[in-house]
């Protein structure tokens, strides 16, 4: 056996026996690359995800909702930060990672390329988008790479109120005036299918899945997670009297799961390719924040250097 094969076998044995991989451990280059790609995509999603929701902070309909939304969007910034830090343990810099986002080279979750048109969208995003994200995140708390798993544990703890606040918004709207209920149903109609797409392509068409499962970066397949999400969410929609916009949705006694209709993968691919309703706005907003902040970051470093010099003198 060559050295690399030996190391790979040792590495795989560690993963198989549920030992976490830590930053200084030897790891296959593809494992490292795969992780960097996944963690930074995840970080970018948190940060870009601030935009569609942040959008409604200034228009939140009560002071309580405004405070909650501020805290929630702020949490997303924190989650982005934890994840960028986790990616840095793999030998990337935050700057490089962010540059890849700003140049359009790196991807982020396509869901954030949809617009938040009404207040009910803030409810739908919390309930469905965070709900779908949590399914993934809970799984990732047990991912094989230590720093990623630790970041996810912290994120899951903080996320727990996000889905609930969204569902509460929807519940209140659904119980409100006919106009409010209509607003809630319309938001569910628009966000349902994109939320299902968040779990990624079907297992048969998922390019990175097999390796990710073998390395225990991922621990459940896209389709499994999607099905669990549907089973849970249908029940929640019933409780608040909203209708899932899928005529094919039907409980299946034999499988003990819901059967459901077909995802429009052409739409998914088109949004991923950059043709969603808000791709350009999202990237433009991130680029503007980054560029406008350049002099601020520079000033802080210049002052720190002066201060250190004076201290040394």
């Amino acid at each position: 056996m060559s050295d690399t094969t030996k190391r790979e076998a040792l590495f795989q044995a560690k993963v198989d026996s549920e030992q976490k991989i830590e930053p200084k451990d030897w790891m296959p280059e593809k494992y490292r690359k795969n992780l960097i790609r996944q963690i930074s995509q995840h970080a970018h999603s948190e940060v870009v995800g601030m935009l569609p929701e942040g959008n409604w902070i200034s228009r939140a309909p009560s002071l309580k909702r405004k405070a909650i939304l501020l805290a929630k969007v702020q949490d997303e910034a924190g989650h982005g930060l934890y994840l960028y830090s986790a990616a840095e343990t793999l030998g990337t810099s935050r700057e490089q990672t962010i540059d890849d986002l700003l140049s359009g080279k790196a991807k982020y979750s396509s869901i954030f390329n949809y617009p938040t048109l009404t207040w009910a969208d803030i409810g739908a995003v919390g309930w469905l988008v965070d709900g779908a994200a949590i399914m993934n995140q809970v799984m990732l708390c047990r991912t094989s790479y230590g720093p990623y798993a630790r970041a996810m544990v912290r994120i899951c703890k903080e996320e727990s109120f996000h889905q609930r606040q969204g569902y509460e918004i929807m519940a209140v709207l659904a119980k409100g005036s006919p106009e409010q209920k209509e607003m809630a149903q319309d938001a569910l109609n628009r966000w349902w299918w994109p939320s299902l797409m968040m779990f990624g392509p079907t297992d048969a068409n998922s390019p990175h899945s097999a390796e990710s499962m073998k390395w225990k970066i991922k621990r459940q397949s896209n389709d499994e997670l999607r099905q669990t999400f549907i089973d849970r969410t249908v029940q929640q929609a019933e409780v608040i009297g909203l209708t899932i916009p899928d005529p094919d949705l039907k409980w299946n006694e034999a499988t003990q799961h819901y059967d459901w209709g077909a995802i429009d993968w052409a739409e998914f691919n088109s949004v991923v390719a950059g043709n969603g309703p808000c791709n350009k706005e999202r990237l433009a907003a991130r680029n503007k924040a980054h560029n406008d902040g350049a002099w601020v970051r520079e000033a802080a470093m210049a002052y720190a250097a002066k201060k250190a010099e004076r201290k040394a003198a």
Binding site: L63, A67, A71, A289
Partner: peptide, 29 residues
């Protein structure tokens, strides 16, 4: 200050500024 949320010069400062917005809205309430 809430208008800055998501547009700050660096993530750490975005978070710091939103903390202030939250303190202020809490006292205002």
């Amino acid at each position: 200050l809430g208008e800055w949320c998501g547009h700050g010069p660096v993530l750490e400062e975005d978070i710091a500024l939103t903390n202030r917005a939250l303190d202020h809205i809490g006292e205002a309430r």
